[in-house]
Nucleic acid binder design. Structure first.
Length: 140
DNA sequence: GCCAACGTTGGC
DNA sequence: GCCAACGTTGGC
């Protein structure tokens, strides 16, 4: 199983909205970046990801699971853009801030730190465990 | 609100 | 195929 991070502006699509979608999940649509799209094409059913609120919050707020593999993005007719569906698994007991992540040397190689603009990004298993520990949240 | 970083577009 | 111009993102 692989690990990922999904970034969203809370004013556009928030964790609460994701949770409200329940088991059905929701298309992670609107991505118009090749790198991000390519990562979504690599995703498999059951892969886990962090749900990160950018901008005003800058915190990892929850864990999601890939519940549909890559398919055409329904919000465009342009066949270049694919996306996956994700569903909420659980919220973080204590949301982990970007500041905490930047302050932890074990996370210094995280893409979130290295390339803050990439909206869908891979996370290593080691990073996954560290961030979950910081958030006092079950990693499995 | 500013600005740096980055990705994309289009003219040549 | 290069590169300047432009638009967008996201941290500060």
């Amino acid at each position: 199983m692989a690990y990922w991070l999904f970034k969203s502006e809370p004013s556009t699509w928030s964790w609460d909205q994701q949770v409200a979608k329940g088991e059905t999940g929701e298309e992670w649509d609107g991505v118009r970046n090749y790198q991000a799209r390519n990562f979504m094409r690599e995703m498999a059913l059951g892969d886990r990801g962090f749900f990160y609120h950018s901008q005003s919050e800058k915190t990892v707020v929850g864990i999601v699971e890939v519940c549909a593999e890559s398919h055409p993005d329904s919000t465009t007719d342009d066949d270049r853009w694919d996306c996956v569906d994700i569903k909420a698994v659980r919220g973080f007991t204590r949301p982990v801030t970007l500041e905490q992540i930047k302050g932890d040397e074990r996370l210094s190689e995280m893409v979130l730190v290295r390339n803050s603009r990439l909206s869908v990004q891979p996370v290593t298993e080691a990073e996954w465990r560290v961030v979950c520990a910081l958030g006092q949240t079950d990693p499995d």
